[in-house]
Design a protein around this nucleic acid. Structure first.
Lengths: 233, 233
DNA sequence: CGTTCGTCAAGAGCAGTGCTCTCGTTTCTT
DNA sequence: AAGAAACGAGAGCACTGCTCTTGACGAACG
């Protein structure tokens, strides 16, 4: 009976995946606002109402695409990190930065969906969270690896002492980078948000007419951030 | 004849402004995707087709709102900066950071429109540029003021030398912060993108369930960035 | 003063959207 | 084999951006 049930469920799973695939292609072309359930149904040769058997609403389809996007980016980051020797922490950071940027450039609309303004009624279902932090998990491991190897030496740049109220937040972040002291956690947050801030500026047009040699600027900026974070030069 | 013509044009300008105001209120409530020309017309008690006499398309209305948003943010930043003694460069930086964040928190949908993913068919008309850089102009003045006052002392943190290809881009940025050397321009870009990266993370949900004491974390992070930039502690 | 002409609001209408409901049909379960 | 659950298709609702046409108002000119 499990085979017969799975027969039904298999075609359902496959159709669900195909709908998501078609939707992702439309998303890549027209962006989130151009994603149309009816167009997806049309391209698949089925009635628009049938789509609702698989995705209860347009937002649910979009949420599925968001999760897929997080996973795709996370996987790209994981692969990039895995290709660098474990002890080369600075190299791992640099390659992760480029992995994020490359993925963003290759999938602009999906990047906008993940790190731009939240689109729909903008609720972030809990399902997204585990996928959303895959890249951050990799990043946290790089920092804690470097710290435990004694390779993390933040410069004596006169950063002010970490304020007491931040301690609880730091403890939460420490779940991703064990043993790392508070001040390094702050530096990590700055570097990480700086990475996405830079890429978002580049993707969303803030660098237009100003920063033209994007790869050179990005690479240099991320190496500077590595130093401020405490990674070796 | 000019009086009569201006009479006509005056009511036209006023209606244009009123449409934009109503639209901005809708934008603030429902976000960019919830902005409806018909709803605006309904609220104003006029036919939807009449709106098109004032804004040729929905995107044009949105563009007008974007320009208004840039100006509002720019003005907030200008006022914040003006309230601090000219020589207190670190204080000016900090207050500008908080001005941007406060404005973003007060106008989340407008911030998303300006610094989130570009919305529909997305093109940024040239009209937006001059308004878009008002905040950046203030920032550039702070940096160059500090530099010329000899108050800018970047730490010896081992940042790599600025690569040659970046020289042209640095020259363009230098239009906003005269006399500033290339390496400080890089630090300025990192700090500026870091500011918006941090705020975007906060606004778009990346800090959810992790960073809870947002004001403390933000304030500290920006003070750290000030030091890395070279501003006095 | 009367006429012409440009500006304007309104209405109807087109093509498209997300979504719901119903109605037969197919498929699985018992 | 009978009942239940899942499914696809179609019609329909309320909504959208946008266009086109019609008719009215007000200003300028002869």
């Amino acid at each position: 009976m499990s085979s017969s049930r799975t027969a039904r469920e298999r075609v359902r799973a496959e159709l669900t995946r195909e709908i998501a695939d078609v939707a992702r292609r439309q998303l890549a072309v027209d962006g989130a606002s151009g994603l149309s359930l009816r167009a997806v149904a049309r391209e698949m040769g089925m009635a628009s109402s049938a789509i609702y058997r698989y995705f209860p609403s347009r937002d649910d389809l979009l949420t599925a695409l968001i999760i897929d996007g997080y996973n795709a980016l996370g996987e790209a980051v994981e692969n990039a990190d895995a290709a660098v020797p474990r002890e080369d922490h600075a190299g791992r950071w640099t390659v992760v930065c480029h992995a994020v940027r490359d993925w963003a450039l290759a999938h602009p609309h999906e990047y906008a969906l993940l790190y731009g303004s939240p689109v729909p009624g903008y609720k972030a279902p809990q399902d997204t969270v585990s996928a959303a932090i895959r890249d951050t998990v990799v990043y946290g491991r790089i920092v804690s690896d470097a710290h435990r190897a004694g390779a993390l030496n933040p410069p004596d740049d006169g950063h002010p002492p970490v304020p007491a109220p931040f301690h609880d937040d730091a403890a939460r972040v420490r779940a991703l980078m064990p043993d790392v002291p508070d001040d390094v956690i702050v530096r990590s947050l700055i570097a990480w948000t700086g990475l996405f801030g830079w890429i978002s500026f580049e993707m969303f047009g803030q660098f237009d007419n100003t920063i033209l040699d994007r790869p050179a600027a990005f690479d240099h900026a991320m190496r500077c951030q590595a130093r401020t974070l405490g990674l070796p030069a």
